[in-house]
């Protein structure tokens, strides 16, 4: 029950209360809206993804390299996974950005956390997109298919 609080700040107004004029633009509004909309779409995408991968047919036992290769041969699943990747990454990144804004107390901490966050997001989105579109189920090196590949007979 007993809540502990920090020693109170001294009587003078802390500089953080000095307002620095309003900000123009609708970024925060659009970010807020994006969170709601992407959230709804992600529920459909993710549960569809889980259903198709884990429940349909042989379910979880069917998942292997060939299964993924087969899915990505179909533009429908390419688009599905691409949308899921982008929306999930941006949704998550915006969520973490919000948490950083809420909890980081120093401007420099906030800046560094955000740099790390945005760098990670960029790498994952670029890498993921690249994989979805350049995925080759049957890699051939010097005329010999690599083992583990999924080549048409």
């Amino acid at each position: 029950m007993t809540a502990t609080i920090d020693s109170p700040r001294s009587g003078k107004i802390s500089p953080q209360y000095r307002r620095t004029g309003g900000t123009k633009g609708n970024f925060e509004m659009l970010a807020w809206l994006f969170m709601r909309l992407s959230g709804v779409v992600l529920v459909v995408l993710i549960f569809g993804h889980l259903f198709v991968n884990l429940l349909v047919g042989e379910g979880i036992h069917a998942i292997d390299f060939g299964f993924v290769a087969g899915k990505w041969a179909d533009p429908f699943w390419q688009i599905w996974d691409l949308t899921m990747l982008w929306l999930a990454m941006l949704h998550g990144t915006n969520g973490v950005r919000t948490i950083i804004n809420d909890y980081a107390e120093k401007d420099s901490t906030r800046l560094w956390l955000k740099i790390v966050l945005y760098a990670a997001t960029t790498v994952i989105i670029v890498l993921g997109t690249l994989v979805i579109f350049t995925f080759n189920p049957c890699p051939v090196v010097d005329g010999v298919p690599l083992p583990g590949g999924f080549c048409p007979a």
Partner: peptide
Amino acid sequence: KPITVEPIKGLPVEKDLIVDMEPFFQS
């Protein structure tokens, strides 16, 4: 149990339970 009485949080405390309300009225 003892009843705890503290100043409201987030505003600069001036003395005991008195806080500076100026930032609050500013917004």
